[in-house]
Design a protein around this nucleic acid. Structure first.
Length: 571
RNA sequence: CGGGGAGUGGCGCAGCCUGGUAGCGCGCCAGUUUUGGGAACUGGAUGUCGCAGGUUCGAAUCCUGUCUCCCCGACCA
């Protein structure tokens, strides 16, 4: 591709609305452009990277035995009513009506549609297993889209769905996908971790997330420093450990805590450490208010509450709901005298003489004790794991890092085959429900994650497999006929070698071309200039290392092509 | 959805408080000189100041409404 003929609008300045580095650099490098919140154009360079990622995913999916299909973006509500998700999914599901007032949604994921395909086709165990996948634009009306392609509302996703006759078969399908995912992210040149995850709204029995490690990641990954255990913070198990305090029980005492709004405020006023205070969190579990007690220095984990109670929706209560359930304002809830059910995190069990809210404005209580002053229906692991907690597998220490969730695989079981009646006849002639799995990869997010992990102050540094072009040939002064001729020849030779090359033939000053080349992040740059030509040489510069080496004209294309192929093979 | 901020040439911003000529940098067009890390000079083009109402002799500026975007939080595959 000739730069002068291409559509590649780079920006010198960082756009005002871009916060994270991948978003800034994608905008500056002319890869994407915002059309609306969470909705982007893919400009030519961006599209090339997207296609690279798609192709890696496609190759590995095909190798793993999955078969590509393409389902509609607009899906009938009818199917979603069958699975129950038309009611369950909430506002994230973009719903619309056609001219006949029939309801549709824009697919945020395709379990319903794919299950419908399979149930209409598969009747016998002989037709299983099957794994169907697609690479398609999805839409999720996110509460808060942000960070460019990292959390868009419209985004390109690879979604695969496996269908098996037996549980062992389903596990095998899951395992194949797990391995394929590892190969995909390795091939993309990304540093990632596979972690245990909560299966959330999609449902199912177990799941893993693939996290690209980056400080800007929105997810917290808990990993054990001593063993291989690694989990999303929503899932990471906190073991029940502690010693019953032997301190004598004090009398309950009312304390005025005027204007206290947080555990930190209360801690100061009561002269207690946050770990001696109990937060009473009001949550609405399927429309019913429930109180969850958490030690002051811990964080409530909503996913764990949801799993414990088998609820479909768990939300923090609004101030109005809190007032109604406790009689007091936000910040002053406490366990004593509450009419609603109390659950508590395990850590609360070991506390003595705790500080709690008084269920009235500006009042807290101290010297409060379990059993004597209030009862809890059940203790469980209901808090977020934290740095320094004990690993349940080896007793090692947890540490946390941040990650970007680029892939998520679920073993679904029969959740959808049951509700949507996708059955097959087994060898013994008995109708059984198909056992499913589903497997997603965010394509744009993978590209964004690659930038988060590979950039410097000058721009992007693409790993070779994702690079929009493998080589950029920079003609320093294309008005110089020798330079022009040598650059053109090199360009043609590289093309003949099958290399993806961008020829910077623009009539710009060298400085601008260098800056643009660095910004675009093309892994290898060849400078063609009068200075080098005198010595029958070009200059070869790796984007990452930055060092320039002389490259003899003779055999230059072959040598560079070899280097590209080596880089591709290494990833 | 709660809190905060912003909409002014293609991009980044100033002007608004205290109403009266719409301004700066980058980019763009033409020309001259330049040409190894975002050139210099000269000349030029580009704005219904988000939208709708209102106040006023006069509104980018004040008031009301509305839309959009961004950030923090809540939530989320």
């Amino acid at each position: 591709m000739r730069y002068s003929q291409y559509f590649l609008p780079t920006l010198k300045e960082t756009p005002g609305d871009a916060e994270v580095v991948s978003h800034q650099l994608m905008s500056r490098a002319g890869m994407i452009r915002k059309v609306a919140a969470g909705i982007y154009d893919y400009l030519p360079l961006g599209l090339r990277v997207i296609r690279k990622a798609e192709n890696i995913v496609r190759e590995e999916m095909n190798k793993a035995g999955a078969i590509e299909i393409l389902m509609p973006a607009v899906c009938p509500a009818d199917l979603w009513e069958q699975s129950g998700r038309w009611q369950q999914y909430g506002k994230e599901l973009l719903r619309l009506k056609d001219r006949k007032e029939t309801e549709f949604c824009i697919g945020p994921t395709h379990e319903e549609v794919v299950t419908e395909i399979v149930r209409g086709t598969v009747n016998s165990y002989r037709q299983l297993p099957v794994n169907l996948y697609q690479i398609q634009t999805k839409f999720r009306d996110e509460v808060r889209p942000r960070f460019g392609l990292m959390r868009g509302r419209e985004f390109i996703m690879k979604d695969a769905y496996s269908f098996d006759a037996t549980d062992e078969g389903a596990n095998l399908s899951y395992e194949k996908m797990r391995k394929a995912y590892c190969r995909i992210f390795e091939r993309c040149g990304l540093k990632y971790r596979m972690v245990e995850a909560d299966s959330g709204a999609i449902g199912g029995s177990f799941s893993h997330e693939f996290m690209v490690l980056a400080d800007t990641g929105e997810d917290v990954v808990i990993s054990c420093e001593s063993c291989e255990y690694s989990a999303n913070i929503e899932k990471a198990v906190v073991i029940d450990k502690g010693e019953m305090s032997q301190a004598p029980m004090n009398e309950v005492e009312r304390v005025v805590t005027k204007g206290a709004h947080s555990v930190a405020d209360v801690s100061v006023m009561l002269e207690l450490k946050p770990s001696q205070i109990v937060k009473t969190m009001l949550v609405i579990v399927d429309d019913e208010p429930v109180a969850v007690l958490i030690r002051g220095d811990h964080e409530l984990n909503v996913a764990k509450v949801k799993n414990l109670l088998g609820a479909s929706v768990v939300e923090l209560a609004t101030p109005e709901q809190i007032a109604k359930a406790t009689g007091g304002p936000v910040g002053f809830s406490g366990p004593i005298g509450l009419k609603i059910t109390l659950y508590a995190d395990n850590a609360v069990k070991y506390m003595r003489n705790m500080g709690v809210g008084g269920n009235e404005k500006d009042i807290h209580l101290e010297g409060v004790n379990l059993e004597r002053d209030f009862q809890v229906k059940q203790f469980a692991d209901l808090r977020d794991a934290a740095d320094g907690d004990t690993c349940p597998h080896c007793g090692g220490r947890y540490s946390n890092t941040r990650g970007i969730e680029v892939g998520h695989i679920f073993k679904l079981g029969t959740k959808y085959s049951e509700s949507m009646k996708a059955t097959f006849l087994d060898a013994d002639g008995v109708a059984k429900e198909i056992i499913m799995g589903c497997y997603g990869i965010g394509i744009g997010r993978t590209a964004a994650a690659a930038i988060e992990q590979n950039h410097d102050e000058n721009g992007i540094i693409w790993p070779m497999p994702l690079a929009p072009f493998q080589v950029i040939v920079t003609m320093l002064n294309p008005k110089d006929e020798e330079v022009l001729a040598a650059g053109e020849k090199l360009y043609q030779d590289l093309l003949s070698e099958g290399i993806e090359v961008l020829l910077d033939d623009r009539d710009e000053r060298p400085g601008s071309k260098f800056k643009d080349a660095d910004l675009l992040g093309i892994p290898l740059r060849i400078n063609v200039g009068a200075r080098g030509l005198k010595e029958q040489s070009f200059e070869l510069q790796e984007r990452r290392a930055g060092e320039r080496v002389m490259l003899p004209i003779e055999g230059a294309a072959q040598k560079v092509a070899e280097q590209v192929r080596t880089a591709l093979a290494a990833e």
